[in-house]
């Protein structure tokens, strides 16, 4: 469903991604690990459609379409959703408004009617309960005054409501304590399914104990230097990244 080919991208003229190849098939959970500065955030940003990143070479195809030609909102409506590392606070916009607007935008893109209010509220309540979030949360402004854990839970809540085809989770574990991590991981695991892909970008192996990936990629200096199964993450945890780069530098 997602095919990244020979992707090169730069920020402010500096080349960060130097030829990334990655394919995610429906039903698969992928994790990208890598040291600081490897290009993890840049890859996330390019997938999300952030301004300020220039793709200089290569392609990204999402469900047969050229992702790089799609506007930010088109990507989301097509089912590619990003869970952000630093969710933005949006004062004055209530969570319930955001959720309804987002859900209706998606339905509209599919040529469906708006969701009726009672059906919407039923859906939201169910997902809130799953994320162990209080109903009062709906009337609070998006992320405003939320703790780090609440913000991340909110990102996952949005995923549960919007049911993406491909969920991108950018450092979803950062700033989470053990309990919050469990709730977030349960939410993500509930998204797993035969026709859905998940791509996690993370610094730490810890997350992968909770959300077990099918494929692990190690990103170093803008390239995927090694891919493997979940045991690769454990190797990285134990041995660091240097052993992976020694061969490729030569």
């Amino acid at each position: 469903m997602l095919e990244i080919k020979d992707l090169h991208a730069s920020v402010d003229g500096k080349i960060i991604l130097k030829g990334i190849n990655l394919t995610i098939n429906p039903g698969e959970v992928h994790a990208i690990m890598g040291p600081n500065g490897a290009g993890k955030s840049t890859l996330s940003a390019v997938l999300a459609g952030n301004d300020g990143y220039e793709v200089t070479q290569g392609s990204i195809t999402f469900e047969g379409k050229d992702l790089l030609e799609m506007e930010v909102e088109e990507r989301a409506r097509a089912g590619l959703l990003m869970g952000f590392q630093y969710p933005v606070e949006i004062p004055g916009v209530k969570n319930v408004y955001l959720l309804k607007a987002a859900l209706n935008a998606q339905r509209e893109a599919r040529g469906e009617e708006e969701i009726p209010a009672p059906e919407f509220m039923k859906l939201i309540r169910e997902k809130l309960a799953y994320m162990k979030m209080d109903n009062s949360f709906l009337q609070r402004a998006v992320n405003e005054g939320f703790s780090g854990g609440e913000k991340k839970r909110n990102e996952i809540l949005q995923m549960l409501v919007l049911q993406p085809r491909l969920a991108l989770l950018d450092e979803i574990d950062s700033g989470l304590d053990v309990d919050a991590m469990k709730v977030v991981a349960e939410g993500v695991n509930s998204l797993r399914g035969a026709d859905r892909g998940i791509l996690m970008v993370t610094h730490y192996q810890r997350l992968l104990d909770h959300i077990v990936p099918d494929v692990v990629h190690v990103l170093v200096d803008g390239r995927v230097v090694k891919s493997g199964d979940k045991s690769l993450a454990l190797d990285v945890e134990e041995r660091g990244y240097d052993w992976l780069t020694e061969g490729s530098v030569a």
Binding site: E73, A76, L81, I90, V93, L98, A105
Partner: peptide
Amino acid sequence: AIFALRARGIDEAMARGL
């Protein structure tokens, strides 16, 4: 904030209105 709303599928005009 506009970007964050668009990243949830809300078009830009609506994001600005919101």
